[in-house]
Design a protein around this nucleic acid. Sequence first.
DNA 1: ATGGCTTATTGTATAAGA
Length: 255
Amino acid sequence: MKLATWNVNSLKVRLPHVLDWLAENPIEVLCLQETKQEDVKFPYDELKAAGYNAVHSGQKTYNGVAILSTHEMTCVQHGIPDFEDEQKRVISVTIDGVRVICVYVVNGQAVDSDKYDYKMRWLKALSAWLVKELKKYPNLVILGDYNIAPDDSDCHDPAAWEGEILVSPRERDAFEELLEMGLHDSFRMLNQEEKQFTWWDYRMMGFRRNRGMRIDHILVSDALKERCASCIIDKAPRKLERPSDHTPVVLEVNL
DNA sequence: ATGGCTTATTGTATAAGA
């Protein structure tokens, strides 16, 4: 089974890219972040025509997450239970006995901002919930835009970014907490190469100069860890006209 | 250098992303 995550930065704008990419990359599961549209505007029909079922937790202008799959999706859950949140950032389903969680972690804007506090509160709630989910679902994968570059090797210029958003110690500690509960960074597990990024700033020719960050991740449970065959970053969509600033990450698991 | 692009909004400048 192949699963992927992609922050599309507006599904309205990026739907053609998504459909083209799915046609070229026949995968079973695709998690999307920043759909930026309400459920009533979600392109269920176009995706169905392409062979994909979809579940969506939508919001106008900001956030919004979706899971597309060629397989049947059951036990759909929106958000983090017992965590009040207006923002649509989490959706979960079960596919072929695997619990699939799609997340769009808070950006945080700046380390001294209210949004950073919200990011840390949000990550704490995510972490507490995932501990329980792991006990409930041994086969668990959590895909998404984490807005955290876990290590200096995941940042194009660690010295320039030291202490900044995406790399600050508290954010990295929160990511580390996910690993300590028994989740595994599938890309790093299979690939030790430095400067492999999933996001590049639109400005300053960020992509051409490979000034990026690895902030989109696919974490797997112990049971799935043994079954991971490959995890790759597909840079092709980032090279298209009018791309998202993020590019897909694809995991292959032997089930 | 706090910008540099891109997206969305009952917009024509502002907020947000990362």
